[in-house]
Write a protein that binds this DNA or RNA. Structure first.
Lengths: 183, 183
DNA sequence: CACAATTCGTTGCATGAGCAACTAGATTAA
DNA sequence: TTAATCTAGTTGCTCATGCAACGAATTGTG
């Protein structure tokens, strides 16, 4: 790769990071260093963990991430209504709608009209749905554990606190409803 | 809303979280509590911050997130090649390709063939591109700052370390190339 | 030199997600 | 009662994204 050599020549001192990437001196000083930019780093991390999980959900159980979320939620508390599935506004209501439709078609979830408010419908896991839940959940947890395994218990607690604080703050900065979805 | 009343009656003790969501006792014990599941929390946080930023990128400058990343990268070091734009595999190469095409059409970026390896092309910000970079960057940074403002300097350092560790680990767990894109 | 293997980058295709418009049901007030 | 407002959820449309196949150029091997 004489390309690199050439570039190193051109690239006075500057960054020259290990990753084999080549760079030339910028015209003016960089204002943002992407790799140090918190939102970017958060997204990379979230993206990676999402991929790890999505692989399990999809390849082994044919579940999309929204579908997985619906299932977990129903495994936790048999609730209903698109909004309750996404307490904050994480996941668009149309996303939930479609995920539920797909799950129903696969026979993993049952709809039952709420007679007290017929706009809504109660959702429940079928026994088959629960079976899948019980199969996926441990694997998902395992990934979570493996991820956390590089942190001490103390660090894990700290992390939790920090995420909490940042999330609260992010909610203030983000457009009223926004959020979105994977993982 | 007598619905809630009804449900509270049915929902022995259980969760009954503040958010006005209603729940019924699950058939068996929940295996995963979504709100405590790290990958989920990371995604919510990343999603929120993405939204906050995307709003700026899009509404005020007509930039998608991949486009923004390309611009920042070029603002940092004038590099080229899809791979160098996404050092790790964050951002698919097709994503980068399309982002660059769009930026070129808007006259924010210039392509110049690399004569030493004609598969590649050098990318540079045009002066107009740089102008946008210099306009967006401070705003993006400001969002980052406002986000971090809820943490003490010490906490910020800790956070950085934790993200670093987790990211390294996540890379091991995720499918070889995976990653993806927003922020 | 020729042939396989790799790499950069683009593009067609299919899928997934958000938006917005809409239906249906519920709630409030006149 | 009736009309206006609001909420739950669905669906058509559009667009972004990932994948996979491809073309072009380069590198490595026999």
């Amino acid at each position: 790769m004489q390309r690199i050599v050439l570039l190193v020549a051109k690239a006075t001192i500057d960054g020259m990071m290990a990753s084999g990437s080549a760079a030339r001196k910028p015209t003016s000083e960089p204002l943002v260093v992407l790799e140090e930019f918190l939102p970017y780093r958060l997204n990379v991390l979230a993206g990676l963990t999402s991929s790890a999980l999505a692989q399990i959900y999809a390849e082994r159980f044919g579940l999309s991430i929204p579908a997985w979320r619906v299932i977990v939620t129903l495994g936790q508390h048999e609730c209903r209504t698109a909004r309750d599935m996404a307490p904050d506004g994480v996941m668009h209501k149309s996303t939930v709608s479609r995920a539920v439709a797909a799950l129903e078609k696969r026979g993993l979830v049952t709809r039952r009209p709420n007679l007290d408010d017929r706009r809504e419908e109660w959702l429940t896991l079928t026994s088959e749905g629960r079976a899948i839940y019980e199969a996926v959940a441990p694997e998902a947890l395992a990934v979570g554990e493996r991820l956390l395994s590089v942190l001490t218990p103390q660090e894990q607690k700290t992390l939790s606190t920090l995420i909490e604080k940042l999330t609260r703050q992010a909610r203030l900065l983000a457009p009223r409803d926004a959020g979105e979805g994977e993982a």
